[in-house]
């Protein structure tokens, strides 16, 4: 999977003032690459990720995946892409409280046409969630919930993984486990785009992109 982002821009208004959340950012991501996006809070990382995943429409610029422009896709087509080729890990706590751990992990499969659960069960083993399969999120610790979140975003075997601060507020053990999962995905030919403040984690990536005030510095 190859990702190419070219001159992506997004402007927001705060009262009467306008500001660039993402200002003219261009980069590319090759198959099997593990890239970290770093920068202070509010620098535009989440907005950038949202635009790539089709959750926000950019004001200008292009996003291409395997040579095809993503911005021409309709809402439903982008949804289908998020259900098949993109795995998006949202920042913070995002589990569905009404569903068990297993059901949360299988959610992308409930929503899509591909109903193969093998990968879901593999991830449950890898992330040490076997004993918690029938538990509800309210009874899980923060680390356990984050592992479930990650398993959920990988259950449909996506080619591109976009992770927004996947290890924030996690203990070193959990953070390490999650890093290892991403590294394994890259070895299997998936691309990972991740934002993080954790320098130890970032050190394991192939490349780092620094963003400040919406602009790519390096």
């Amino acid at each position: 999977m190859e990702l190419k982002v070219d001159k992506l821009t997004k402007k927001y208004s705060r009262g009467e003032k306008e500001f660039f959340a993402v200002d003219n950012i261009s980069f590319s991501l090759d198959k099997g690459e593990f890239v970290a996006v770093i920068g202070p809070s509010g620098c535009g990382k989440s907005t950038l990720f949202s635009m790539i995943a089709g959750l926000v429409k950019p004001d200008s610029g292009t996003v291409e995946m395997n040579g095809e422009s993503l911005l021409k896709l309709s809402k439903d087509e982008f949804s289908h892409l998020r259900n098949t080729k993109i795995g998006y890990i949202l920042q913070g706590q995002n589990l569905m409280q009404n569903f068990t751990v297993l059901e949360n992990i299988c959610l992308p499969l409930y929503l899509g046409k591909d109903r193969n659960t093998d990968r879901a069960y593999e991830l449950i083993e890898t992330l040490g969630l076997k004993e918690l399969m029938n538990s509800y999120p309210a009874s899980l610790s923060g680390g356990e919930q984050r592992r479930v979140s990650i398993a959920r975003s990988l259950a449909h075997n996506p080619e591109l993984i976009i992770a927004d601060e996947p290890t924030s507020n996690l203990d070193p053990e959990n953070a390490k486990l999650i890093t290892e999962v991403f590294m394994k995905e890259c070895k299997d030919g998936k691309s990972v785009l991740m934002s993080s403040h954790n320098l130890e984690l970032v050190a394991n990536t192939d490349r780092q992109l620094k963003i400040l005030n919406g602009k790519l510095i390096n």
């Binding site: 959750l55 439903d76 949804s79 259900n83 992308p108 929503l111 899509g112």
Partner: peptide
Amino acid sequence: QHEFGVLISLGATQKQ
């Protein structure tokens, strides 16, 4: 709303 947003991020269409 957030719950629906999560579903969309996982690939739910707005029709769903």
